[in-house]
Simulated scan of single mutants.
Amino acid sequence: MFTLLEKAVLGMALLRILSGGLEIFAAYLMIRFNELDKALIINGSLAFIGPLVLILTTAIGLTGLAEQVSFKKLILIILGVSFIIAGVKSN
């Protein structure tokens, strides 16, 4: 009847729920202030939070998979995440 969740999966899901809540709250603040300069400041702060959540959720997942994944695959996953962050951060 009840399914036990892995701690890593639960941690990743809770972090994503928190991130989604912050996104919704930021949208509310943008509408509430109704000023373009303040909306850009709020959006800029979200641009910092997004990659941070990506790194944290990936770290939690990799910690949970560390016993099951070979070292070579672990390096490839870390490299892939690094490419994603570099691509988003590039000018």
Rank of each mutant, 00 (worst) to 15 (best):
M1A: 09
F2H: 11
F2K: 13
T3I: 08
T3Q: 14
L4N: 10
A8W: 07
V9H: 12
V9S: 09
G11Y: 03
G11R: 06
M12W: 04
M12L: 02
M12P: 05
L14Y: 02
L15A: 14
L15S: 15
R16V: 11
R16C: 13
S19W: 04
G20N: 12
G20D: 08
G21Y: 09
G21Q: 09
G21P: 10
L22E: 07
L22I: 08
E23M: 11
E23W: 04
A26F: 02
A26D: 01
A26R: 09
A27Q: 10
Y28D: 03
M30G: 13
M30Q: 14
M30L: 05
I31W: 06
I31G: 07
R32E: 06
F33I: 05
F33P: 03
F33Q: 13
E35I: 08
E35Q: 15
E35S: 13
E35D: 13
L36D: 11
L36H: 10
L36P: 07
D37L: 06
D37F: 13
K38M: 07
L40H: 14
I41S: 09
I41W: 12
G44Q: 11
S45A: 10
S45K: 14
A47T: 06
A47G: 08
F48W: 07
F48T: 01
I49V: 14
G50P: 03
L52Y: 10
V53N: 01
L54N: 08
L54E: 07
L56C: 03
T57S: 12
T57P: 07
T57M: 04
A59V: 04
A59R: 11
A59G: 15
I60H: 01
G61W: 07
G61L: 10
L62F: 04
L62C: 10
G64V: 08
G64D: 06
A66D: 09
A66K: 12
A66G: 06
E67H: 15
E67D: 15
S70V: 01
S70T: 12
F71A: 03
F71L: 09
K72N: 14
K73V: 03
L76N: 03
L76V: 05
I77G: 00
I77K: 00
L79P: 01
G80S: 01
G80Q: 00
S82E: 00
F83M: 01
F83A: 02
I85Y: 00
A86N: 02
A86S: 03
A86E: 00
G87C: 08
G87I: 04
V88S: 11
K89P: 00
S90Q: 14
N91Q: 11
